[in-house]
Design a protein around this nucleic acid. Structure first.
Length: 496
RNA sequence: GGCCCUGUGGUCAAGUGGUUAAGACACCGCUCUUUCAAGGCGGUAACAGGGGUUCGACUCCCCUCAGGGUCACCA
């Protein structure tokens, strides 16, 4: 009989959601959905010093933004709550007491200072730093004496010093640890709060977690946790340790590597779909070689067996490429909605204008989105549709504004456009081409300076698309303004 | 340092004893074109090293080396 699959993502709220954490959450979600299971979110806030409420909010926000929806957890509830470890202290204390009563755990009165000193000694002696079980067999008298000294005890688990602890990992296979490398680790701190290795086990059991899918850094913790499972008489879940995500220099991801949190990527203009797609590809691969796919396909095909064992270095270039793909393929209204906050932030439009100019923004996006990789870039790329040109790209000036007849040509072009009754792609293009034909010029000789005049740049969408969207009046105005600029700066003069 | 994990091009990554060792990103050409992208076509580039096992190893075993993780009253 197979139990319903239940997995969990259990972040500690000590910072933002990292892309590594997001990937772990994603794999849990994919596995749960693939198996019609339940995805639980649990907040591991037992570190009273470092846990912050703002972090919880940020993590939830990031997960929602990515579409990593949990079935049970904060703001959602469920039959196995509460989902904050700080609200489950009674349970841990009860289980710890049980261990105490059964003689499987004991109070330890050593102070952090004493412990640190001994650890250092052992290190100096070239030995592995481990607790030697000093308080393992304390008599009542010793205990009373320590209590009288005002020492607050921790609770340690009695770990067997012989034999081995075996981790059967779905991704890594059988991993054997000698028990002699384990020590009597702390399960309850002196403040009555459990440590990670204890709380995690108690909760995974209480929440009926069937598969523990987490980052590889936890593999070495697993034998300890297995000892807790055994002491408590719990059945073991299945374990799967997914490879880590490393920075480009092969070290662990940290702030010095630029953007690492989900929110930073979002603010840089990456779409959630792109991040999900990219993260899915880090450590896992689909059956076929098509690398662009949505979460539905990932859910359909996801198995832990196809997760590879090697740590992956994340590559922003590939993420950016995927982002570019979604930028041009996703629904136009959706991209338009996404671009607005970026435009507002950059001062290109105001919040109020965004509603009124929605259709116009949408058309600008339609013209430019092929050429941008991120929302941030795209916002810059369409800025000229909303704000007058204030400067001209230098290399463009040299190339297109410094010719003898540059100003005159722009003026003639403006006139030709002005005469048009119908202002369409066809009519404007025709006007330009017949003008240049009559002057014995190539159309490009007018097109390029015009682009520079009305956008300030040498690159961008097709000129006539721009002209039509920008409108006759504005186009003509900008062309004349550019002609003035050229005269002022002198034909043949180099860029200012 | 002890223990554990890992090792296919610059990066991601197929591959599970016999393959011309896929594909993608990046890079470089060509093409399309009013520019830039996008698209199309093509190219450079890899099984860490050494021993075994085998008729035959990228695939299995051992050693070396390299990278990573972990050794807290952090998770």
């Amino acid at each position: 009989m197979t139990d319903k699959v239940r997995v969990r993502f259990a972040p500690s709220p000590t910072g933002s959601l990292h892309i590594g954490g997001a990937r772990t959450a994603l794999f849990n979600l994919l596995f749960a959905r693939h198996n019609n299971g339940v995805f639980v979110l649990r907040i591991e806030d037992t570190d009273t010093e470092r846990s912050r409420e703002e972090s919880v909010a940020q993590i939830l926000r990031s997960m929602r933004w990515l579409g990593l929806d949990w079935d049970e957890g904060p703001e959602k509830g469920g039959d196995y709550g509460p989902y904050f470890q700080s609200q489950r202290l009674e349970l841990y204390r009860r289980e710890a007491q049980r261990l105490l009563d059964e003689g499987k755990a004991y109070y330890c009165y050593c102070t952090p200072e004493e412990l640190a000193a001994r650890r250092e000694e052992m290190m100096k002696a070239g030995k592995a730093p481990r607790y030697e079980g000093l308080c393992r067999n304390l008599c009542d008298e010793d205990r009373k004496r320590y209590e009288a000294e005002g020492r607050k005890p921790v609770i340690r688990l009695k770990v067997p010093q012989e034999g081995q602890t075996v981790v059967e990992d779905i991704i890594r296979g059988t991993v054997v640890f000698e028990n002699s490398v384990l020590d009597d680790f702390i399960i309850m701190k002196s403040n009555g709060v459990p440590t990670y290795n204890f709380a995690c086990v108690v909760d995974d059991h209480a929440m009926k977690i069937t598969h523990v899918i987490r980052a590889e850094e936890h593999l070495s913790n697993t034998p300890k946790q297995i000892q807790v499972y055994k002491a408590l008489g719990y059945e073991l879940p299945r374990f799967a340790h997914v490879p880590m995500i490393l920075a480009p220099d092969r070290s662990k991801l940290s702030k010095r590597h630029g953007a690492t949190s989900v929110e930073e990527f979002r603010d840089q203009g990456y779409l959630s779909q792109a991040i999900i797609n990219y993260l899915t590809l880090l450590g896992w691969s689909p059956l076929d070689s098509e690398e662009i796919f949505d979460m539905d396909k990932a859910v359909r095909e996801f198995t832990l067996e196809r997760v590879n064992k090697t740590a992956a270095i994340y590559d922003v270039k590939k993420l950016t490429w995927i982002n570019g793909h979604y930028l041009r393929e996703l629904d136009l209204d959706y991209i338009t909605d996404q671009i607005i906050p970026f435009m507002v932030k950059k001062g290109i439009i105001t919040e109020e204008e965004s509603g009124k100019k929605y259709e116009y923004i949408k058309q600008a996006v339609a013209l430019s989105r092929d050429r941008s990789k991120t929302l941030d870039e795209l916002a810059d790329a369409i800025a000229f549709f909303f704000k007058d040109v204030t400067e001209y790209e230098e290399k463009g000036v040299k190339k297109h504004f410094c010719k003898e007849n540059a100003a005159e040509l722009l003026l003639k072009g403006a006139e030709a456009l002005e005469r048009l009754d119908e202002f369409t792609h066809e009519s404007t293009e025709h006007a330009f081409r017949s003008l240049t034909d009559s002057m014995g010029l190539k159309a490009a000789e007018l097109i390029h300076p015009t682009r520079l005049a009305i956008t300030g740049r040498t690159v961008g969408p097709g000129l006539f698309e721009i002209i039509v969207l920008l409108g006759k009046e504005e186009t003509v105005k900008r062309m004349r303004k550019a002609a003035d600029w050229i005269r002022k700066h002198g034909a043949g003069a180099s860029a200012s």
